[in-house]
């Protein structure tokens, strides 16, 4: 599903690499936590998977594609198979819940009949079927993140990338979001999630990859947030 082969990334104007010789593999159907202190390279890792950034050296394989050799016009096709969720939700404030999810389908040219069918379905999965006409500012943070997850999941992507999805939420709401991501994972979607939330990581007991100053310092299959050795 995802393969990093000696990947290094240094941002221009930066003298320290954000990722330094990272090699790892993530299998289909896995649920992976990406942990590490601020600035350790978690978001950089996820941006490389989305091909928002290019590595300086090494190869990133995603969904069977060598991203170094993927031509620009094929990037949209790749991203259609990857759902993305962020800490700041990234919803359109002037569109309703339904329209926000529908937007993701409209811009990839899906027919209206398809949209009318699948949007209510996915809103039911995230538990927002009775709030479809609300606008984001009429929703709680947790509900907004559910909309974002619905939008990321509406195409039933192979891979879901979540960069600190619970970073703006209180612990109870976070647990709700985690249950939702877990459910999506059980439906067959590979999930990679970066987080600073030790409670969640400790409860879920899934694979944990820890980064520090761009190096992988730990990769445990049923890990916890801190060092458990």
């Amino acid at each position: 599903m995802i393969l990093f082969d000696h990947v290094s990334k240094t941002y221009p104007s930066q003298n320290r690499p954000a990722l330094d010789d990272v090699s790892l593999e993530i299998e289909k159907g896995e649920f992976v936590f990406l942990v590490g202190p601020s600035g350790s390279g978690k978001s950089t890792f996820l941006r490389l998977v989305l091909r928002e950034e290019h590595p300086n050296s090494g190869t990133v394989w995603v969904l069977g594609k060598d991203l170094n050799r993927l031509s620009n016009w094929k990037i949209p096709t790749l991203r259609r198979q990857i759902g993305t969720v962020f800490q700041d939700f990234r919803l359109l404030p002037n569109k309703s819940v339904f329209e926000n999810v529908a937007f993701a389908l409209e811009v990839i040219g899906k027919p209206r009949s398809h949209i009318r069918k699948v949007v209510p379905e996915v809103l039911e999965v995230v538990g927002l079927e009775d709030k479809m006409e609300r606008r984001p500012d009429e929703l709680s943070g947790g509900e907004q993140q559910r909309v974002a997850i619905a939008r990321a999941f509406v195409n039933r992507p192979m891979l879901l990338i979540a960069d600190e999805p619970t970073g703006n939420l209180d612990p109870n709401t976070s647990i709700g979001i985690m249950k939702l991501l877990d459910r999506i994972n059980r439906l067959g979607t590979t999930v990679i999630m970066s987080t600073h939330d030790s409670q969640i990581v400790d409860q879920m007991r899934r694979r944990v990859i820890e980064l520090e100053t761009g190096h992988v310092v730990r990769d445990q299959s049923r890990g916890v947030y801190g060092y458990a050795r």
């Binding site: 620009n72 993305t84 990234r90 811009v107 990839i108």
Partner: peptide, 17 residues
């Protein structure tokens, strides 16, 4: 940029954006 950023993420083609 908000709209176009989302469009890029969900895989809208350059042409469509």
């Amino acid at each position: 940029r908000r709209e176009t950023g989302i469009m890029r993420l969900v895989g809208a083609s350059n042409f469509y954006i």
